[in-house]
């Protein structure tokens, strides 16, 4: 189901297929839809951030996201990735869904000490898990913090490609597409194209690559 939803989002970001509606990709009546929205995070709403002629989100979309936020809040012992992902979904809901700020929970405080403290392989792994937050304007504080470690993310990008971990490589490539100061010697565009060739069959990999191209023009 997650792969199907990711494919639907990627299709919408490419400007193909029927006009996007989250409630059509993930029906509220489906018991697993809230879980899929929670896993996709802010990416579930990514087409509403694109310049395509995506219709504005409706009440049914709001219902799907509200169900996900209510069913899977991060617990007291939740990982930093889980809290940041939840925060990203809340921020995207504020930005792209109708209802005003009163309808949505406040974004939870998320720890960011790991951005400075993690060794670069661990940092790269965590950042790739949060690639859905690399939407334009989302989580600017996290993006600013990651900007201080662009070189380490670039190292992680190369490492992930060498490990053939296409999901991590695509997520890092998406962050690098958003961040300034990426070393030109990295060959980000060629790297993203290579990842698409090798791992583009995975729906979530394809989604990261399409997002990097749609929002930042990288990987063409």
């Amino acid at each position: 189901m997650i792969a199907d939803a990711a494919s639907g989002v990627a299709l919408a970001l490419r400007g193909e297929g029927d006009p996007y509606a989250l409630s059509r990709v993930l029906r509220q009546s489906d018991a697993l839809a809230p879980a899929a929205v929670r896993v996709l995070g802010a990416d579930a709403l990514a087409p509403y951030a694109a310049d395509h002629h995506t219709p504005a989100a409706g009440d049914e979309d709001r219902g799907v996201v509200q169900a996900a936020l209510a069913a899977f809040p991060p617990g007291a012992d939740a990982s930093a990735v889980s809290v940041w992902s939840y925060r990203g979904l809340v921020e995207a809901s504020h930005a792209f869904l109708p209802g005003g700020p009163d309808r949505w929970p406040q974004p939870p405080d998320a720890a960011s000490g790991w951005v400075e403290a993690d060794p670069w392989p661990r940092l790269a792994h965590r950042a790739s898990q949060l690639a859905a937050l690399a939407l334009p304007g989302l989580s600017p504080a996290l993006a600013d913090a990651l900007t201080t470690r662009t070189d380490d993310l670039a190292r992680g990008f190369v490492r992930a490609v060498r490990r053939r971990d296409w999901l991590q490589a695509a997520g890092l490539g998406r962050w690098l597409a958003r961040l300034p100061g990426v070393p030109p010697t990295l060959g980000l565009d060629a790297g993203l194209a290579f990842i698409g060739h090798m791992g583009g069959g995975d729906a979530r990999v394809a989604l990261h690559l399409v997002a990097a191209r749609c929002f930042y023009g990288r990987g063409e």
């Binding site: 697993l32 889980s82 060498r162 490990r163 053939r164």
Partner: peptide, 22 residues
């Protein structure tokens, strides 16, 4: 079931890094 699903969601969100193939 809902607790199990919540655990699975957490695992998907913060999955461990797979062993690399060098």
């Amino acid at each position: 079931e809902s607790v199990t699903l919540a655990v699975e969601v957490e695992d998907l969100l913060d999955s461990t890094e797979p062993d690399g193939v060098f």
